[in-house]
Simulated scan of single mutants.
Amino acid sequence: MRKRKLIDLARPSRQHWLGYILLAPAVILVAAIIAYPLLISIDISFQDVKLPRMGAARKPFTLENYQDLFSSPEFWHTCWVTLKLVVVVTTACLAVGLATALLVNNRFRGRRIARLAVALPWAVPEVIATVIFAWIFDSSFGLMGWLFIKLGLANQMVAWFSDTTAAFWVVATTMVWKGYPFVSIMCLAGLQSIPEDFYNAAKVDGASALQRLRWITIPSLMPVLGVTMVLVVLWVFRDFSIIKVLTDGGPLKATQTLSIMTYNEAFGFFKFGYASAVGVITLLLCVIASMAMLGRGSKAMY
C-alpha cells in the first residue's frame, strides 16, 4: 500500500505534490524561526509595551509608536547616519573588492597566498576585528595616531572617538576592512566563469586592458555585482557589533544606526513597542532598497 502511494507520487502528473511534501519541513522550520518572530514584532510595534511577558494580556492597538517615531528628530538623524554609512561602505567595499579580485585573478608567483591574504579579514570574527581597530585608533597609544604624527599630519595624538566626523570614518573604515573580502570572493568566482576566449578575441581586435575591463569584465560580472551589492547593503543595515564595540553610537549619536537605536530603545529604555516600530521601519527600508537594486541590476543586464 505504501509502495503504491510512492509510485503514484512519482508519476509526472503528481510530481509537484512530491516537491511540496519534500519542501514542507524546510518551509515549516523557516516559518517557525523567521516568520513567527517577525509577526510578533509587528504586533508589538502597534502596542505600548514596556517589557513583554509570556502570557500577558494584549494591550490596545495604537499608532502612537509610529507617530512618535516619525516626529522624532533623533530617528531622522539616525536614518541619515545609516544612509551615509550604507553608501560609503558599500561603494568602498565594491571598489576595493573588485580591484583585489582583478589582482589575484592574474597568474603570478604566490597567487594562492595572495588570495588567502585577501580572504583573511572575512574569517576574523567581527568583535575581534573591532577590538583590533579600537587599538589602532586609540587616542593615547594607537598606531594610526602615531603614523599621523610621523607623517606630519598631526602635532599630537588624534582623539578619533571624541570627534563626530572622525568617529564616523573610523566605523566606516572598520566595516570596509571587514566587508571587502566578501566582495573579492564573489567577484573572483565571477571572473573565473568568464570564458578566456572573450579576452583572446578582444586582444586580437586590438582592445586595451581598460577596454576589455569596460566591455567584457564589467558586463559579465553585473549579475554577481548586483547580488553582492544587495548582500553588502543588507549587512551594513543590520550590522551591530562593530558600531557597538567601537563607539556605541557616539559621540553625540554621530554613529548611531537603526540597529543601534533599536537596541538602545529596547534594552536601554525598555520601550519594546517603540523599538519594534524602529525594527519594522528598518525591515521595510531593507526590502525597498533590495527591490530597487535588483530591479536596476536586471535592467542593466538587458
Rank of each mutant, 00 (worst) to 15 (best):
R115C: 06
N155K: 08
L94S: 07
F269D: 03
F237L: 12
A56T: 04
A167C: 06
W235G: 14
E126I: 10
P37C: 08
Q67F: 11
R115V: 07
S220K: 03
F46M: 10
A10M: 15
P37M: 12
S290L: 02
I136L: 13
I44S: 04
L69D: 08
V170C: 06
G206Y: 02
A154G: 02
L147M: 10
V204Q: 02
S193A: 14
I136D: 03
L69E: 05
I218S: 01
N106P: 00
A154N: 05
I218H: 03
D205W: 01
G145Y: 02
L51D: 01
A277Q: 07
T257L: 08
A254G: 08
T217H: 00
A292E: 05
T247V: 05
L102H: 09
M261D: 09
V171F: 04
K150D: 11
M229I: 14
A24H: 09
Y302C: 00
W122K: 01
I113S: 05
T91I: 11
C93T: 15
F61W: 14
R214N: 09
G142N: 06
I185C: 10
Y180P: 03
M186D: 00
I194M: 14
Q156N: 12
S290F: 01
A167Y: 06
T165H: 12
R11P: 06
W160P: 06
A92T: 01
Q192R: 10
E265V: 04
S193R: 11
P223M: 05
P223G: 05
F61D: 07
Y263C: 07
A35K: 02
W215S: 14
Q192G: 07
S140V: 00
Y274F: 14
F46A: 02
M229G: 15
F148V: 03
A207P: 10
S72V: 07
M261E: 12
I44D: 07
